[in-house]
């Protein structure tokens, strides 16, 4: 049976495509963006998470682990991730749900059942379902069946992609997709590699595939999303470069360009995985800085098509 590993389902989202939506977060991503907001979505397998705020220090997890991967001294339980085989025994034993595994297996029918719960809201809000991640196309065969089921039920579909995937799997998904949310982080490939671990040539090639498809199939909406990361992508040069590229290669099929302001609200996710995060202390973008970047973007793209989203500092 075809299954997928999903690390979260957000209902009632208004930020991942048109209208009100349910966003499914698929596990696994080929990029390693230094600012990643979903660190629990990068790996393809399940990941053990430990939530300090919920832990009551009963050490039920330690008792349940037959590999000796959990121990403690006087404080909280310590997980030896080398020894852990993600069996989930500690998760079942934890009374406080402080220990969890990121990544739940779903069959296509189960996942469709889960997202259909908000169908009545999709109808009023002209929304639907967004496949996000991680990188949803890393489980492309599943997403294909998932979208096929949703389209058969008349549900609007959106694909939120980082763009790095096999061209063929992307092309297979496009006919079942109503809206593509395509991340464009840097035009400079060196910068792209420095901040995400990968160059951007394959990503731009995939964007060209989407653009070509959209030219032939005017029903496909295309949103470009650029994260505004302080000290990285949030520069006038970068936004202008992306703007120039959009104007020359994408504009005729573009519906919206979103500049997504960074926030560090996800820092707890890193703590749950015992991971250090270089962006932990990075503050919000200021209104003024966002205005400047918006201005830069509007040099190239009509003003009503580009917007800043997310929280800004005073």
């Amino acid at each position: 049976m075809l299954t997928a590993r999903v690390f979260d389902i957000h209902r009632g989202t208004t930020h991942d495509g048109p209208g009100l939506r349910t966003t499914v977060f698929f596990k696994g991503c080929p990029l390693a963006c230094r600012w990643c907001q979903n660190p629990e979505g990068i790996g393809f397998g399940p990941q053990l998470q430990w939530h300090a705020r919920k832990c009551i220090g009963c050490y039920s997890c330690e008792a349940a682990c037959d590999r000796g991967a959990i121990s403690h001294e006087s404080g909280p339980p310590i997980v030896n991730r080398e020894l852990c085989d993600m069996c989930g025994a500690c998760v079942a034993a934890c009374p406080a749900k402080a220990t969890t595994l990121s990544g739940t297996e779903y069959t296509v029918d189960q996942l469709i059942g889960a997202v259909m719960k908000d169908r009545k809201f999709f109808e009023t809000f002209e929304g639907g379902v967004t496949a996000s991640g991680g990188e949803p196309t890393s489980q492309a065969a599943f997403v294909y069946e998932f979208f096929k089921g949703l389209k058969a039920a008349g549900i609007h579909t959106a694909l939120d992609t980082c763009g790095l995937t096999a061209g063929a799997s992307l092309e297979r998904l496009l006919p079942l997709t109503d809206c593509v949310l395509f991340d464009l982080k840097f035009i400079d490939s060196g910068m792209h590699r420095d901040h995400t671990g990968q160059p951007n040539a394959a990503i731009l090639a995939n964007l060209a595939r989407v653009v070509e498809f959209a030219r032939a199939n005017r029903g496909l909406a295309l949103w470009i999303r650029t994260p505004l990361i302080p000290g990285a992508s949030a520069s006038a040069e970068n936004v202008s470069a992306i703007g120039r590229f959009i104007r020359s290669d994408v504009l005729d099929v573009l519906d919206r360009w979103e500049l997504c302001a960074f926030n560090s609200l996800c820092r707890e996710k890193y703590q749950k995985l015992n991971l250090a995060w270089e962006y932990e202390g990075v503050g919000l973008l200021s209104h003024a800085a966002a205005e400047d970047l918006l201005g830069a973007a509007r040099e190239y793209v009509p003003a009503d098509m580009v917007a800043v989203t997310g929280i800004l500092a005073e």
Binding site: T14, K120, T124, F125, A307, T309
Partner: peptide, 24 residues
């Protein structure tokens, strides 16, 4: 207010949400 981060019109959100809730 953070629920609405600029893209959305709050009045329209409330209108659609409440209409769906009450229609059901």
């Amino acid at each position: 207010p953070r629920f609405f981060d600029g893209k959305d019109n709050i009045g329209s959100f409330i209108e659609k949400f409440s209409r769906t809730y009450m229609a059901h």
